[in-house]
Design a protein around this nucleic acid. Structure first.
Lengths: 186, 186
DNA sequence: TGAAATTGTGCACTATAATGCACAAAAAGT
DNA sequence: ACTTTTTGTGCATTATAGTGCACAATTTCA
């Protein structure tokens, strides 16, 4: 279940089927147009919370039942299905594989840094930690004052609640996995 | 906590305060513009689920923590704060006082019908029931084939999963409270 | 098997969510 | 007290959610 919109679409389609309703039927019950309902089901749009609320009311289901992601287990995320966040003019590409989830309270990225690429980062929440494994290329990580250099296969864990930065000093593409963990708050 | 947008605004404002962040800070963390965040906090807009999701990620909180309504208890809904759904060209005014909530699984309306006003209704979900108390005026309710006439102070309960209708045959305004209960599904 | 109703999709148009910049008020630093 | 930074709001513009109608495919019923 890739993105939220697509997930909502699946939920709506399922809930509608359970009540054996047509798009037209749901439209009359909820006051949301048939076209919009179709687009939501296909995951083509990101509905506003107000329309989502009207749909939930029309179907007499909870708001969260439309938003909740089915916890498929195991869950496979194909490489091509996740687009990168571009940094440093394209030299740094950040692929969010498992985005933040309040349940598990960490997020996982796949990061690529071209030779010479540089990415500074502000400190995260207090207590946050990062776990990085470098798979290929070279990586220099600065945390506060200290700098650490990683070779392929090396890993690092550090407290990420202070400013830090990533830099590829080598001549090859640097590829790594990064996990950011957020300390559970009150 | 009147409507959903206003409710989300309160949640965001509170969560932002807990982390001692400025609008600008949340904007940087979430990728949502400062202006939009301000409008969301003030309840001026109904954000899309995607922006709400980005905000939740930026703050590292769950999606539902932004949507959840604080269960104030007791909860007072002033008369003027709830606008009517207009039917039969204005002769029937339907005020949703306590909208549907999956938790309690019923909803409550205050309904006014002018003399001669008529409102047909399709059957609701199977197992649904209606509970009506007439406070003033006259009310004739047709359920399936049978018709029932109510005088001020009378109440009625009936299975509402079949087509039914409301009619004011008298010369005075008919005022009533209506509760619709939906049988809990699997 | 044809007519009539019902289903979901496509498209032009409208309403509004979302952005970026500028501004005024408050807070912090000198 | 004056400057400098940070705070939140207002406004013009852009992007997109949302609507209504029409269409094609399917289903229903005579």
């Amino acid at each position: 279940m890739e993105n939220l919109s697509h997930c909502i679409g699946e939920n709506l389609k399922r809930l509608r089927a359970e009540q054996a309703l047509s798009l037209d039927g749901v439209a009359k019950l909820s006051g949301v147009s048939k076209s919009m309902l179709g687009q939501v089901e296909r995951g083509e749009v990101s509905p506003t919370v107000s329309t989502l609320w009207r749909i939930a009311n029309g179907l007499k289901v909870s708001f969260s039942s439309l938003v909740k992601r089915s916890q498929d287990d195991p869950e496979v995320i194909p490489r091509d299905e996740v687009g990168p966040l571009i940094e440093d003019g394209g030299k740094v590409r950040n692929y969010p594989i498992f985005p933040f989830d309040a349940e598990r309270s960490f997020e996982m990225y796949r990061v690529e840094i071209d030779p010479g690429g540089y990415l500074p980062a502000e400190g995260h929440n207090t207590g946050a930690q990062e776990f990085i494994t470098l798979h290929s290329g070279q990586l220099a990580i600065r945390v506060g004052e200290a700098e650490h250099t990683l070779d392929p296969g090396d890993s690092i864990r550090f407290k990420a609640d202070v400013p830090h930065s990533y830099h590829n000093p080598g001549g090859d593409l640097a590829r790594m996995s990064m996990v950011i963990y957020y300390a559970r708050s009150s």
